[in-house]
Design a protein around this nucleic acid. Structure first.
Length: 348
DNA sequence: AAAGATGATTGGGG
DNA sequence: CCCCAATCATCTTT
């Protein structure tokens, strides 16, 4: 936290405006949700030698970021997600993060403007104050207009330096915020317990047709505090991974199937008889060619994974195949019968 | 540090 | 568009 070149000539006007104060405020915003103390990388804050070029760059950037926009036009800003928009570009409709970003950006903008105004007002007041003083002095002493000019110029110089610092701070804040947003796209953050719970609940209670409709996705997204895209991603991943290695998910399955309404605990007989019977529709009628058995196949799966028959024998070939139909590659079947721990991670 | 888990991205297909 | 499958990149566990 290098102190500013000078906290300004502390004018007698309103109150002393401390730029570091502003900076702290702004930084507090960006760190608000991201607790990590990521280095802000304040590369060389070269105070001295303030070239106009730099100021220009700052101005441009602030303008580009919409911080300087004097008037706001597209005020609506509604999400306007008709569902079929988002032209080729970001397939991410992270409405949540985006709104978060916009909220913080507008906070920054607000602070920036109010501070800027304060600076300007202070500058004006201080200037008039000084000129008045000089004029008073001029009655007793000859004060050359040049001197007045010089003093006023010095004052303006000081204040513009402060303004530039403000602009720079704002720029940094925006950059940090923006990079955080972009990073968030790439950086992976595990979902909250709540989110995974909601998703798993749905998944296992719709095991025979784990394809939530758009509405269902929105509902899940809302409940889990994630985006619809994330819900879609999650289900995509889950389907693949589940059918790829069901053994791993069995405890999870029992947990969630037990938790949800879909009980039918008539599992009983672990007999190795065929399972292609039916249980028509355990839930949600799916326009899906799947006879599928809700939980019966669960136990079946257990058996299957315990005894992977490479060559003949059971033809259990996914009779219940439903959506997981063609997945016979037990390439590396490792019957992990370990009912180990239920892993209760404390996320967040 | 290696292995596993997990969210996101990419390319191909309907 | 949505889905699957493979893959990447990161986080978490061992």
């Amino acid at each position: 936290m290098a102190a500013p070149p000078r906290p300004a000539p502390s004018p007698p006007a309103p109150r002393r405006l401390d730029t570091s104060d502003v900076l702290q405020q702004i930084m507090a915003i960006t760190d608000q949700s991201l607790d990590e103390a990521q280095a802000v990388s304040i590369r060389g804050i070269q105070d001295e030698d303030p070239p106009d070029a730099q100021l220009l760059r700052l101005d441009n950037m602030l303008l580009a970021e919409g911080v300087c926009r004097p008037e706001k036009r597209g005020r609506g800003g509604a999400v306007a997600r008709a569902g079929t928009a988002t032209p080729g570009g970001c397939p991410n409709d992270n409405s949540i993060e985006h709104s978060d970003y916009r909220a913080k950006l507008s906070q920054i903008r607000q602070i920036y403007h109010s501070e800027l105004e304060k600076y300007e007002q202070a500058c004006r007041e201080f200037t008039t104050h000084v000129t008045n003083l000089l004029q008073e002095q001029s009655r007793m002493r000859p004060v050359s207009p040049k001197e007045i000019e010089r003093v006023v110029g010095a004052i303006h110089g000081k204040f513009s330096a402060i303004q530039m610092q403000l602009k720079q701070s704002t720029c940094e804040a925006v950059i940090t915020l923006r990079s955080r947003l972009l990073d968030a796209r790439r950086k992976r953050r595990n979902f909250s317990k709540q989110a995974t719970e909601v998703l798993n609940e749905y998944f296992y209670s719709h095991l025979n047709n784990p394809y939530p409709s758009e509405e269902a996705k929105e509902e899940l997204a809302r409940k889990g505090g994630i985006t619809v895209s994330q819900v879609s991603n999650w289900f995509g991943n889950k389907r693949i991974r589940y059918k790829k290695n069901m053994g791993k998910f069995q405890e999870e399955a029992t947990i969630y199937t037990g938790k949800t309404a879909v009980d039918t605990t008539e599992v009983g007989v672990p007999g190795n008889h065929a399972s292609c019977l039916s249980t028509p529709s355990s839930s949600s009628s799916g326009p899906f060619p799947l006879p599928s058995a809700g939980d019966a196949f669960l136990t079946l799966r257990t058996l299957a994974s315990l005894q992977p028959p490479p060559g003949g024998g059971c033809l259990q070939s996914q009779a219940q195949g439903s959506w997981q139909g063609a997945t016979p590659p037990p390439a590396t079947a490792s019957p992990a019968g370990d009912p180990g721990s239920i892993n209760s991670s404390t996320s967040n």
